[in-house]
Write a protein that binds this DNA or RNA. Sequence first.
DNA 1: TAACTGTACTATTTATATTGATACAGTTGT
DNA 2: ACAACTGTATCAATATAAATAGTACAGTTA
Lengths: 127, 127
Amino acid sequence: MFTLDYQSRMPIYEQLYRSIIKMAALGVMAPNEKLPSVRMLGQQLGVNPNTVQKAYQMLERDRIVYSVPGKGSFLSPDLSRVDLKKAELLEKVAAALREAVDHGVERSELLQYTKQLLNIESAGENT
Amino acid sequence: MFTLDYQSRMPIYEQLYRSIIKMAALGVMAPNEKLPSVRMLGQQLGVNPNTVQKAYQMLERDRIVYSVPGKGSFLSPDLSRVDLKKAELLEKVAAALREAVDHGVERSELLQYTKQLLNIESAGENT
DNA sequence: TAACTGTACTATTTATATTGATACAGTTGT
DNA sequence: ACAACTGTATCAATATAAATAGTACAGTTA
């Protein structure tokens, strides 16, 4: 059902996350359809159930999946909308990054800068 | 001349980099002014010369500093312009990121996404 | 109660970032 | 030519963070 590349630098959970999003967007999976359990899928893919869970939680955060403890994880009743909204926002980020790169800003610094911005947790100030 | 916070999570070279940019932008340092040598400044700050060099190289990449092997490192003749242009571009990136965060996109995913975009070097594809 | 489900917490492994040690090469003035 | 400076490149060591796994817990269902 899911194919993933273990040689890729892209984390397993990220691959899973994207696969499911793509399937939901393409209509391969129906709304409210039950996803395989974290253990089932984990075993099938040869990874730890927690790795699967991480992907499921990311999807849940995006309202693409909802989980019920004891019952299972399911695709959301209303799909596609959330996905498009986020894709739009991400494209905006991508455009800004590309523009910066095109103007000669080093990739490493952009990454550094992004990290800095995203870690507002107990961040230190400079003079 | 330079003050930096060793307790900060921000790398030394990053602090140095920003300090010098700020000084150049504020006119504290004049165009073509000679910067302390990597060894001098390294010793003064109690860090490895390579750490200073890293900051200098970042500044050189930004055309804020130019270095001549055997002679030294100097502030560029034409300052401020480059700095402002880049600041503008970075602010655009920051705005896009903030918007995404505000809409609920997880910081970790944004970071992941950014990494993905910036590493077009020998990157792996997903299905 | 037994077999499933998701979830939380903690370790372990792995990758990456940061800093340091060392060696090399160019410039300058004597 | 030489001594004392300069930047630079390469590699090693360390520190930090990310990714995955192990284990235990709690809810659901039949």
